Computed example of a mutant assay.
Amino acid sequence: MSATKPTIVHVITNFAGVGGAEMMLARLIEQTESQYQHVVIALMKSSSIYQTTLQRCQAHYALGWNGINTLPVTLKLRQLLKQWAPHAVQCWMYHANVLTSLSLLGLKQAPNFFWGIHHSLASTKEESLSTKTALILSRYLSSQPTGIVYCAHSSQIQHQTYGLNNPQSVVIPNGVFLQQFQPNLELHQPITIGFAGRYHTAKGYPYLFETMSLLKDHPIRFKIAGGGASLEHPEVKALFEQYQLESEKVQLLDQISDMPAFYQSIDAFLMTSITEGFPNVLVEAMASGLPCISTDVGDAKFIVDDFGWIVPPRDSKALAQAILNYVQLSSNEKINMKQLVRQRVETNFSIDHVSQQYMQMWSQNA
């Protein structure tokens, strides 16, 4: 083990999907590898999606947790934390928070460790039994970690109201590599509005389709990206037919791999979600110079600030009117907005700015 750089151990529930927490962990490791050596412990499994990230690490583990084997996995986690004796432990998501807390109980030289919460409590009834159990345990264990990192102000308020109490609670937003997203200062004809989100209740697809139907008579084109955004999906096909939309004006792109190119192909970004925590997609869109029209969910209002339009969730008429407000701007006003939203991200949501906040927290509490 190298003694030249302090070690940070990251414990994450699952390092296999493309959720906000996983993406943020990957970016944070890449950004801070010159200052720290990183060890990743995935309670469940790791994916080849993060092969490059794992190669940057001093070591990585996947413990195969499935719920039934909670005790042996917790003991293995305890063993690994004792073995590495890290400078600090950063947890990512509920189950990682809880199992790390349990694994450190009674340890004489326990490292400072920080919970990471990347979730909204807007719809707890829809959570799985496993998540509900983790939440209940979180309420009892929340005073144990050195601090709690929330990715969204709205999430911090929700969880503290729920009963998570820790005097060292901070909000550190997710960040992006600015060089991956570049503004396109040209405007498209017709004006093109983009949406990106998988087909899921939280993303508000019915309101998206109703909004597009309200604007059928306007010279506006929509590009819809995300897993399930296809006429092969029966519910999407039903919505498309219900509102009598035209494929020339509404392009369903399904899952796409090149999001920066997608952002380059549109003029403004639309988010119709009915619940969110910290919507990364808004930051990516704004980094790409796109004004955003979004529902008032999670930290959307904080992200967009005064550089876009925020409307109530489930209000298609308000969404349609906000889109028209954008469309009716002059070309110069639209281009000026592109520059302003990019500056907003450069100032607040760059990975450099965000990683500095993590490193300051790790060092101050060492």
Score class of each variant (00 low, 15 high):
I191M: 14
F114K: 07
K125I: 12
A134S: 15
A322Q: 02
S316H: 06
L329M: 07
Y162F: 14
H119P: 05
A261C: 01
G226P: 00
H119D: 03
A134P: 15
N280I: 02
S257P: 07
H87P: 04
P6I: 03
E30C: 03
H159Q: 07
K223A: 05
L107V: 15
Q31E: 13
L340N: 12
V236Y: 11
Y205V: 00
V170E: 10
D254C: 09
L28D: 11
I274R: 12
I256F: 01
F307D: 09
S169R: 03
Q321G: 06
L187C: 09
N165W: 15
L54N: 04
V283K: 11
N69F: 00
D305C: 04
F195E: 10
Q189R: 08
I266F: 09
T7N: 04
F222E: 06
I172Q: 11
T201M: 08
Q244I: 12
I256Y: 06
Q37S: 08
T53N: 09
L77R: 10
A287N: 05
G20Y: 12
Q364G: 15
L178K: 06
A320C: 13
P234M: 02
D299M: 05
L290S: 01
I49N: 08
Q144L: 06
I12P: 11
G194P: 04
S128G: 12
W92M: 05
T124E: 14
F222P: 00
K108G: 08
G194W: 10
Q160W: 08
G228W: 05
I224C: 06
S130Q: 09
Q180G: 08
P291L: 03
D352Y: 13
G19S: 10
Q90Y: 06
Y150A: 07
F15V: 10
G64N: 06
I335P: 04
N336Q: 13
K108C: 08
S128W: 08
P219Y: 09
R139K: 11
G106I: 02
E186Q: 14
Q255C: 07
H38W: 13
D267Y: 14
I68P: 12
R221D: 07
D254A: 04
W92A: 05
H95K: 03
V9G: 07
N66C: 00
T272A: 04
A318M: 10
D258S: 03
S316I: 00
Q189M: 09
W362L: 12
N14A: 12
A229W: 02
Q328H: 15
I8E: 05
L63T: 03
L54K: 05
Q37M: 06
Q182H: 08
I12T: 11
M93K: 00
Y140E: 13
F15D: 07
I148Q: 00
A21S: 08
M259T: 02
V311E: 01
S265E: 09
S47P: 02
P145H: 01
A268C: 11
A152Q: 12
T131V: 04
T131E: 03
S350G: 15
W92F: 06
K82P: 01
P219T: 14
A62K: 10
N174Q: 06
Q356H: 14
T13E: 12
F278E: 02
I172T: 04
M1F: 11
Q90V: 10
S288R: 14
D315C: 07
S330H: 11
M44A: 11
M271Y: 07
M24W: 13
P312V: 10
S273H: 00
G298F: 01
